[in-house]
Each structure stands twice: as C-alpha cells, then as structure tokens.
Simulated assay, not measured.
Amino acid sequence: MPLLLSRLLNRLTRRITWGLPAELLLFVFVTSWPLMAWAEPGERIVDPGVYWYWFIVTAATVGYGDYAPTTTEGYLVTVYVVVGGIVTITALFARIAQMIDKAKGLRMHGHGTLKVANHIVILGYTVGRTERIIDELVADEPRDVVICAWDDQAMEHPLAHREGVHFVRGNLTEDAVLGRAVLSEAVAVLVDARDDDEALKVTVAASHNRPDVHTVVALHDLAHARTISRIAATACCVPWHSIEFITEEVQDAGMSDVYNELMHHSDRNTYSIRVPSTLAGRTFGEFQRALGFWNAATILAVRTGAKPDISPSWSDEVQVGTTLYYIAKRRLRTEDLERYVDRAERALMFSERELLRSEWH
C-alpha cells in the first residue's frame, strides 16, 4: 500500500503544471459560493463583495474571523474551502519544487544554458588536470569558469561544490553546446583537448562561434601550431604539459610570445654578473637604473643564497658577491657594470643640483 501511494504521488507530481493550482482554486471558489449561500441564506458572508475576501482569507488558512458562518452547514463549507486551499498551496509548492529539481538536474548534467559573462571557457575535461588549471586561474582573483566536456568525459558536474565553476556537456564542435557555455560573453577560451586532432576540430568550432575572443590552444606537439594558425589566426598555441604556461597565457594575452622571444628569437639574451667589492652598499634600484638607462638592460633576479630572488624591491641592498641575472644585447664585464653605476650616480647628482636651482623648489 505505501508503495502504491508513493507511485501515485510521483505520477501526480509529474503532471502538475502552473495552471493546476489556479484551476483548483477557481473550482473550489465556484462550488463553495452556492453552497455557502444555501447554508447561510441572507447572511452578509454570502454577499459578492464580501465572499471573495472571506474565501481568499480562509483558503490561505489565515482566518481573521471578521466574517464567519453560524450554522453547521456553513462550518462544513468552511472546512471544504480550507481543504481546497491546502490542496492548492500544496500543488503550487510541488510545482516550484519540481522546477527547482529540474533546474538542478540540468545544471548537474550540463544541459542547461548558463547566465554568465566575462568568464573563461575550458573546452575539454581531464580529471585532476582541469582542477589544477582552474586553481591557477582563480588564484589571484575569483572569476567564473565554465568547463565544457564531451559526453564520455564527465556525466555530471565534476566540481559542483565549487562556487563560480559551471558545467556544460555535449559535442564541443556544435554551436548549440558552445552557445550554452555563453562563448559570446567569454573573455578567454582554452582548448584543452585529449589530442591535437581533437584540438584542431574544437578550435575550428570555437573560432567560428567567436572569432574575436582570446583563444589558447594546448598542443601536445607544437609543430601543429602552423595548422591551427590557418584556421584561427589569432589563436595562441602553448605546450600541453605546462599548466603554468597555459594559465599565464589565458589570463595575460601575449605572455607566451614574450617567453618565446626571450628564449628563441630576440636580439637580446640572458646573462649574469657578480657584484664586485667596489660597488658595495648599492641597492637593487641603483643597479636597475644604471643598466636600464645606460645599457638598455633589465635585471630579472638576484641570487645571494640557494634560490634566486625574482624582481626584488628597489630599496633592497645588494651584497658584494651577489649574482645579477639580466637581459641585454651583450654580456657585461665588471668594469662595464662599475662604469654604468658611476654614470647613473653622477647623472642623479646632476639632476638634484638642477632641482635645487629651480624656482619652485
């Protein structure tokens, strides 16, 4: 018996529509008014201007008591109205619960259309790897990320517990699926496919759907980057194995070009030099100013102990024997470093003297 009632309730719940509560309420109103007129003839409660008010208050189970029946038959009609109101309210909340469950199901299974903007779309899902990518993307500031997975990659939202992470599932080469991920409002797209052939197909679809968005394609073999450029000229191809490289390019467009220029194609190179005893007591800022102004060089890091210090504060004092790592067109000798620091100091002193002579000082 309980099983039968449960099945009946589930069947009725599935058939509930938004119109059913209104239909129930209208039916009870239409049938209860003549009954109340028969039970309470001549009473004010059955007047058209009063009965609708009494009906709503009673059906809502509020019951102010300003109007009430006086006969047994009137009490029975009141019970009928109260029961009808409870059934109507139950049907209404059942419909709301049904709608919430449906929306939750669509979200969990990646079939719903998202409402996001200025987000990052990741096309492709790999257990563990995608989680690491998202951790890197949201490390500096919270942002919405949409995971788009093939049907065989994830059946349900893999990160449903994380706020700001959304899920879409389907054929990633179809415009309808990319539309549910709101690619039109994304600030960046990462194509993180299982192989380079899949990456090519997904890039074609993404470029067709949104050709102007910043697109990053993770490739297992960068030799395929030329093929990608033929169908998405602005897409940036990066090595699949370097998650840090990928996330930096997604967040800061052109970062991979900077790295490539530093490592392969630039007319500058990276060098190192030790600070001599003749330049003791100088700060990092003094060395940076000297090399930048007189040699168009940039100091990237210093090393005093076991690990280098990347871009230290300009006010930090650089000890004798510290190694300076810099980018320049040529390698500097110790005497070059001494000469540039001396020039920078004399130029600064000259500027201070000019400042003292100025009228506004």
Rank of each mutant, 00 (worst) to 15 (best):
residue 137 L to I: 07
residue 229 S to W: 09
residue 97 A to Y: 10
residue 109 H to Y: 12
residue 352 E to K: 13
residue 260 N to L: 10
residue 2 P to V: 10
residue 156 E to H: 07
residue 166 H to S: 07
residue 32 S to E: 02
residue 52 W to R: 10
residue 219 L to D: 06
residue 172 L to K: 05
residue 222 L to G: 07
residue 221 D to E: 11
residue 313 S to A: 15
residue 148 C to E: 10
residue 22 A to Q: 02
residue 111 H to S: 12
residue 105 G to Y: 13
residue 191 V to T: 00
residue 265 H to P: 02
residue 336 D to L: 05
residue 311 S to F: 11
residue 161 H to L: 11
residue 98 Q to T: 08
residue 151 D to E: 15
residue 34 P to E: 04
residue 24 L to P: 03
residue 215 T to N: 02
residue 229 S to E: 12
residue 157 H to L: 08
residue 264 H to F: 14
residue 71 T to L: 03
residue 147 I to S: 00
residue 173 T to R: 07
residue 312 P to R: 00
residue 224 H to M: 08
residue 95 R to G: 06
residue 261 E to I: 12
residue 312 P to W: 01
residue 93 F to V: 11
residue 39 A to Y: 05
residue 346 R to S: 11
residue 323 T to F: 08
residue 218 A to W: 05
residue 29 F to S: 03
residue 334 T to N: 04
residue 306 A to S: 12
residue 294 W to I: 02
residue 173 T to A: 04
residue 73 E to A: 15
residue 36 M to W: 05
residue 205 A to W: 02
residue 149 A to L: 08
residue 300 L to G: 08
residue 23 E to T: 14
residue 273 I to W: 02
residue 251 Q to K: 15
residue 143 R to H: 02
residue 349 M to R: 14
residue 165 V to R: 00
residue 136 E to L: 11
residue 334 T to L: 06
residue 277 S to E: 12
residue 218 A to K: 05
residue 55 F to N: 01
residue 41 P to W: 07
residue 256 S to R: 09
residue 281 G to D: 14
residue 118 N to T: 06
residue 304 T to W: 13
residue 211 P to L: 05
residue 44 R to C: 03
residue 251 Q to R: 15
residue 221 D to S: 10
residue 178 L to T: 06
residue 43 E to V: 10
residue 55 F to K: 00
residue 45 I to A: 02
residue 239 P to Y: 06
residue 107 R to E: 15
residue 8 L to S: 09
residue 146 V to F: 04
residue 83 V to P: 01
residue 186 A to D: 06
residue 145 V to Q: 00
residue 202 V to L: 07
residue 333 R to N: 10
residue 54 W to I: 04
residue 207 S to Q: 14
residue 61 T to K: 03
residue 337 L to H: 01
residue 121 V to H: 01
residue 9 L to G: 03
residue 195 D to C: 03
residue 206 A to H: 03
residue 96 I to Q: 08
residue 157 H to P: 03
residue 332 L to G: 06
residue 222 L to C: 08
residue 199 A to Q: 06
residue 319 Q to Y: 09
residue 155 M to R: 14
residue 246 I to Q: 06
residue 236 C to P: 01
residue 308 P to A: 08
residue 58 T to V: 08
residue 195 D to P: 04
residue 360 W to E: 14
residue 175 D to H: 13
residue 153 Q to A: 10
residue 135 D to R: 09
residue 147 I to Q: 01
residue 221 D to L: 10
residue 80 Y to S: 08
residue 325 Y to K: 04
residue 47 D to G: 12
residue 57 V to P: 00
residue 66 D to L: 10
residue 65 G to W: 04
residue 147 I to H: 00
residue 109 H to V: 12
residue 275 V to R: 00
residue 356 L to D: 10
residue 178 L to S: 00
residue 325 Y to G: 04
residue 236 C to Y: 12
residue 254 G to N: 09
residue 110 G to K: 02
